[in-house]
Write a protein that binds this DNA or RNA. Sequence first.
DNA 1: GGCGTGCGTGGAAGCGCTCTCACCACAATG
DNA 2: CATTGTGGTGAGAGCGCTTCCACGCACGCC
Lengths: 347, 347
Amino acid sequence: MTRVNGTRKPAAGGTPTLDEVARVAGVSRATASRAINGGQRVSAAAQASVDSAVRTLGYVPNPAARSLVTRRTDSIAVVVPEPDDRVFSDPFFAGTLRGVTRVLSERDIQLVLLLARPGASTARTLRYLTNRHVDGALVVSHHRDDGLAEHMSRLDLPCVFGGRPWSAGDRVAYVDVDNTAGERIATEVLVERGCRRIGTIAGPSDMTAAEDRLAGWRQAMAAAGLADDAVEHGDFTELGGQRAADALLARHPDLDGIVVASDLMAAGALKVLASLGRSVPDDVAVVGYDDLGVAERTTPALTTVRQPVEEMAERATRLLLEQVDGHSPSHPMRVIIPPTLVTRDSA
Amino acid sequence: MTRVNGTRKPAAGGTPTLDEVARVAGVSRATASRAINGGQRVSAAAQASVDSAVRTLGYVPNPAARSLVTRRTDSIAVVVPEPDDRVFSDPFFAGTLRGVTRVLSERDIQLVLLLARPGASTARTLRYLTNRHVDGALVVSHHRDDGLAEHMSRLDLPCVFGGRPWSAGDRVAYVDVDNTAGERIATEVLVERGCRRIGTIAGPSDMTAAEDRLAGWRQAMAAAGLADDAVEHGDFTELGGQRAADALLARHPDLDGIVVASDLMAAGALKVLASLGRSVPDDVAVVGYDDLGVAERTTPALTTVRQPVEEMAERATRLLLEQVDGHSPSHPMRVIIPPTLVTRDSA
DNA sequence: GGCGTGCGTGGAAGCGCTCTCACCACAATG
DNA sequence: CATTGTGGTGAGAGCGCTTCCACGCACGCC
């Protein structure tokens, strides 16, 4: 909040104001304003002269003045809690950003990237959001939750989460893919292909997506009447997948199928299997999760469950904009997107 | 610009204003304001009571009102012209974002992501920047230039380019790595190792970085008294590198060294060499460029020239903030960062 | 004792915009 | 003819904040 160097231009004769537009157009400021904002109740003549005044003066409305009175900023925040450095390179994040910007570009809304750096800066983020610096927030709750959902739900600010938040899921809107169903489908692929000893490499248990997927695996295993004891946790990285696969295969050398909660971890698992001389999918079939690019490049290419990230981001953004437009702290809405299976070579 | 639903809260009794703070603190609005903004010319007593009023009321200054009078927004834009969908997944972009946010997080400045979608929306971007919606702009001129530099230099808005812009390079501040020197160094590595027939896979000729690197290669070749005729252009992708390597080796089967303008293209080249049965570095030595992650994962690992992307972004951001603080449309400043060689196995 | 000189303070003037409201002309209705 | 709209308009009141300026007041100095 520290103002560093308060040099201010003395009323900057440079930029034209609405007053000048009005004067040039020969109308009142009120009429000029109306003409500029959609032209309700403005005669054709007035509209035309305002338009031309705007053009000759190169007038651009001052956003601060406007939002001071409208109480809108025409911008939304994309909040990324705890962005450890991986986030940016993450295809999930990239896809999200793509989806968001696609929707925003349809309207004149800007995107403010709010990165709550690890540490106590969640407070700063909340402060920023508190006083309506933005019209709404899209929280990419990719990582553990911090109670951010609770805070947000208290904020009376339109808000949508990407991915089910850990808590307050009932008070907050979110868009998620049906992780449970997805992993169920993945597991069923192995069951149907004849696997009888199926293990899973789950994600970190502090992430809802990981937990939901694990639940899906358990459901499918139960439905097939198979034992669900072969579980190992990884951290969604390739190395983590490698370690988990090592441990899993050491404990259960008889596995003929592995359901992995992310493609990156599956890639690690494939490496381990290759080094053990187990052929995929013949000795051990493997199914991944994500299909964000990695899956096509492994050997063999991964059969996986696709998360339509961009679509999710688009839906989330639209949901947010609806809230913003209606200005309703509307009843928590959620969109659950069905996952789809992508069959390749690993199962 | 369309206002969709002008529902406005009637003076929102919810959020406290400076007036209320002043009343609660028992001082005037002026004093309250001073106390809140760094406390110059405020007695300890007044400061204390304002502080406590702020705390009890949960007061947060209204940014619109503030920036209406200060003419500052405490936010800067990161402008990405023509973000074809690759940009987001690009480690270059990711690193840049990381560097920028690191600097911004030291102060209370926010980042607005301005993505000029392909098409005529450059106009919109310029309009957005024109009326001081942000205090400054960092243009990641990763791709071809669009005359954006000219436009920007006319805008009287603090502005720094990441990477030398095609034109107006003399009127605009920018931060760049010394691409020419970098590729010269890369080439010299091959020369010193005894290569005598060295080709290059250059980047697309509509990018300054690509052209500069090509120039560096030519300089080094000339200095070594070698012919600089073995040139092929790629598009900085792996596939492009593959194609270029194919073409290059077909035309010049006697090459014993290849200088490649990006690691990704070098990865493609390595594949081609492997499929031709040429061993690297013994038959053909290869040097890449970037060192943003890919280089370590190729087989063999790439000797390459490191671009310190994050550092570049940091420097650029600091440069921008200096301009913003001084509010000087200061003499075009540039920072050229020396590249460093990273020796691995491919040369 | 008079006089700068400095600090702390509050009054008040905006920053540039939107929007209510009162007003006018004119048309349509009883 | 009096009444009720109805579309276009401008005056003016803010939105919440910063900052200029003038005003005390206490101090140290001749």
